[in-house]
Design a protein around this nucleic acid. Structure first.
Lengths: 266, 266
DNA sequence: GATTTTTATATTGTACTACAATATGACTGC
DNA sequence: GCAGTCATATTGTAGTACAATATAAAAATC
């Protein structure tokens, strides 16, 4: 577990110091987070993806700040601001004299939107998809039930609007956007901001599903009836019906994803 | 919604620049997070608590970095490192020329351990406790069921150890520590790190409960049988029994907290 | 020779300065 | 009245210097 200070950490950006613009790394477009326009944002993403992606392994000691800043072609100031954020997400730990170490995944803030997005930067593993689905099965039926009990008329209107947008969707992109809005509206309708903050997980799960099902883009509206049942149960203030309808939706989605996986073994 | 640059933001620390040590703010000891030893850690906590505690209101424009750094008696460098973390937690948003603004609570990362701890820095509201309990009702029964299906022998041993520590607890502190370990062990036993990351919520909920029940510290072991039922159900690989037992435990805990609240209206 | 104490040293932590980038708002011209 | 231009305030970035800290080597002591 010795350090390798000579390991290549240089980002793909081919010294674009003149323009100040850095070339985007050739990675998949991640759903949730918009590409950073700040320098420390770039550094943050770069290091975050390398750590979560496994390129930088847990326990590994990063080069010292000055060297790392040089390799990344940024100032130590910018690097440190990125490091503080990585540290806040539980990915690294810095101590004087000893250096900055990648922490064990046990300490990572797995529900953080960036961490989730970085996990999906590469094609997500079957195991990770399973875990995402499990989270959906736990969260969304409960949220639907709570929404049926407590949602306001404004929140119901937002649900209606999202459903209408899904019904009117002309392509997969439209559908994906409206679908996301629907599930976010359900979480918000619980009037529990802790529940609503779990949207990062749902968003990642749905985004992954959309990517996996992208090649068979036809029949993307197949789950519309499921959504309608959830909506109607919430409107009628029937928590149990809402829970069951949502659970059916998620289970159906899981079955669908497993079928696709078996079909076109990536 | 105009800015008030003269608003007092000076921390309680009475210019302890000579020693470098800052006086601890007279706030409640928060359960999860250890007091920061770094300067930007202090600044982070200070600003975080003020924002989450409502002293700095959403939409409000903070003083510019130089002025704020002066008021906090730290360098702009340290202040900015704290700001980046606050920004990563969704609490503030900085833009050139316009300044740093406190964001709407809708954007706060409510599941972040620090944000949760800051919400509990003041006495938590009844509403917040209700939301915490709702989260427990959703998360923990599902986790217990998943643990019954998938937990390993090592994980079961950790559960056993935590239960033994609870049974052997001599005072409320011992009990609280072991109780926390038990619930963490259940989450870990799901073998789903996303589920395990929800421990910050459980920790906050249990911590709040301990504080609320501190004055009636006798009979703190009353929930031991509940824990035993959960443990045995997991050991016997009975997910439904585990789910029901855990749900009973949480509901019992909720009833208990409501009774205390009605009794000693704070 | 083993153990404790001291010292050296490498790395992060903090402060300060200077300047670049950027978005707002006022000003100008039409 | 409206579009375009420019001044300006604030954050963003870079660089330097030094303080604090923890490891490891070295020295002193038993």
């Amino acid at each position: 577990m010795t350090n390798k200070p000579t390991k290549d950490l240089t980002p793909p950006a081919p010294k674009a110091a003149a323009t100040g613009v850095r070339a985007a790394p050739p990675r998949r477009r991640v759903p949730g987070s918009s590409p950073p326009r700040n320098l420390h944002g770039h550094v943050l993403h770069e290091l975050g993806q390398r750590i979560v992606g496994g390129e930088l392994r847990p326990g590994e000691l990063l080069p010292r700040e000055e060297a790392l800043a040089d390799q990344m072609q940024v100032s130590r100031t910018a690097l440190r601001e990125a490091m503080k954020v990585l540290s806040a997400k539980g990915l690294v730990e810095s101590r004087p004299k000893v250096g900055t170490r990648v922490r064990d995944p046990r300490f990572w803030h797995q529900l953080d939107a960036d961490v989730l997005a970085w996990r999906c930067a590469l094609m997500p593993t079957e195991d990770f998809v399973r875990k995402l689905v499990e989270m959906r099965e736990v969260i969304e039926p409960a949220a639907a039930a709570a929404a049926a009990v407590r949602c306001s008329v404004e929140q119901l209107e937002r649900l209606d609007a999202a459903y209408a947008a899904m019904a009117a969707a002309k392509d997969l992109d439209d559908w994906a956007q409206a679908d996301l809005a629907f599930h976010e509206a359900v979480l918000n309708a619980t009037n529990n901001e802790l529940m609503a903050s779990l949207f990062s997980v749902i968003e990642t799960a749905l985004g992954t599903f959309f990517v996996l099902s992208a090649r068979t883009a036809k029949d993307f509206k197949y789950s519309l009836p499921h959504h309608q049942k959830v909506l109607e149960a919430i409107r009628r203030r029937q928590p149990d019906a809402a829970r069951r309808a949502m659970l059916r939706m998620v289970d159906d989605s899981r079955a669908n994803i497993e079928k696709r996986r078996r079909g076109a073994k990536v």
